[in-house]
Design a protein around this nucleic acid. Structure first.
Lengths: 199, 199
DNA sequence: GCACACAATTGAACATTGTTCAATATTTCG
DNA sequence: CGAAATATTGAACAATGTTCAATTGTGTGC
């Protein structure tokens, strides 16, 4: 039996999350199970329930870490660009790149959510808001003449659209095979939508 | 015991699919289970496996029926509009309306798909293609000067974008509560993207 | 009408899942 | 060193998808 001082609660949390991520990366979210994670970190199921309330909360934390990584990669893109227009385009491509490179973890974020999900905790709702705010700042300098509300709308349209194209592309529902690359779709969206906005 | 002549295989298929749809509509896709469906139609689990290969195939048929309904509603919209521009806009709104009105069944279409899904049967892949073709025809008359490949791209961009906005709206990930309605987002997408295309 | 063969249907069985919690092992403290 | 506190276990429960030998109903040939 593992001794109680071998690892702190936080260490067990961290180990569990890492083990879960490895499982998901390697075999997809359906392969995730409490027993597998527990045995991977050298503990048993019961211990996991000391540290996470239940599987929902566990997955919420996994998703939160994935979102953190995504936002971090977005920040890098923002830091690398002077021109706002080029930056928006790069950000949208980056969203697809991230999703493609981390498909299984990224999919978990959306497989898990239910329509009746009123119970999503505040800290998670905040995480979601984070992405929009980055985009809103950029759009603000791009279409300076627009009202804040219009910019909020534009940010949501772009975010949702790129998300949709990415989602369908990754789950192979776009009926696109090599002919048009996903970049082409994203570029078409961004260029034409922004052109329409600033017309 | 139900007698063997009480229902044909096709009747059992139909009854199973209807029972499953009721379950999903009422309680979401997670409430779907072979035993529940079986007991609902007055048979037992084993019978279901005479009629469907496994749960994956079962869900595929449920989704196929949902897609049929969606396409049917799209066809109605198309028949009701003369003007191509207005028709595209109405179609996009219709996509959200359908998804909102049939949230649980519509979500199942996307919860179920995996990235490694090479094994999606042809007849299902064809069903997916159906949506694009409707949109492509419309866009053809709208941006007649464009090459067929560009129209294919535009159809995929619009489809994916509306899908993404709809998905995030329905799963409450758009951080939009009343302020901007989803129609506003869809209208903004369609008007500005089409304006960009025809500029 | 009866027995036999065939086919439809069952439901027990298996492995696996999330989750709980009394029992146990280990550490800490007086 | 003994006792109290706490960390950890793992058996137990209900539910899942899936299989398949056993059973039961039906139709056919005599």
């Amino acid at each position: 039996m593992a001794r109680r001082s071998d690892h702190s609660r936080d260490e067990i949390r961290e180990m569990s999350l890492q083990a879960a991520e490895q499982l998901i990366i390697a075999q997809g979210y359906k392969a995730l199970s409490a027993r597998k994670v527990a045995s991977e970190i050298g503990y048993t199921v019961g211990t996991l329930y000391l540290v996470f309330k239940n599987q929902d909360e566990f997955i919420l934390h996994i998703n939160s870490r994935t979102l953190d990584e995504l936002y971090q990669s977005m920040q890098t893109v923002i830091d690398d660009h002077q021109d706002a227009h080029a930056c928006v385009l790069a950000l949208c491509r980056n969203y697809y790149d991230f999703a493609a490179a981390n498909a299984n973890r990224w999919l978990l974020i959306f497989e898990h959510a239910l329509p009746e999900d009123n119970g999503v905790p505040d800290w998670y709702q905040q995480r979601i808001r984070g992405g929009f705010e980055m985009l809103e700042k950029l759009l603000q300098s791009l279409v300076a003449t627009h009202k804040p509300q219009q910019i909020g709308t534009a940010a949501r349209v772009l975010w949702g659209s790129v998300h949709g194209i990415t989602m369908l592309a990754i789950t192979r529902k776009l009926d696109v095979v090599g002919i048009e690359s996903v970049y082409e779709l994203i570029d078409s969206l961004v260029e034409n939508y922004l052109a329409g906005l600033t017309r």
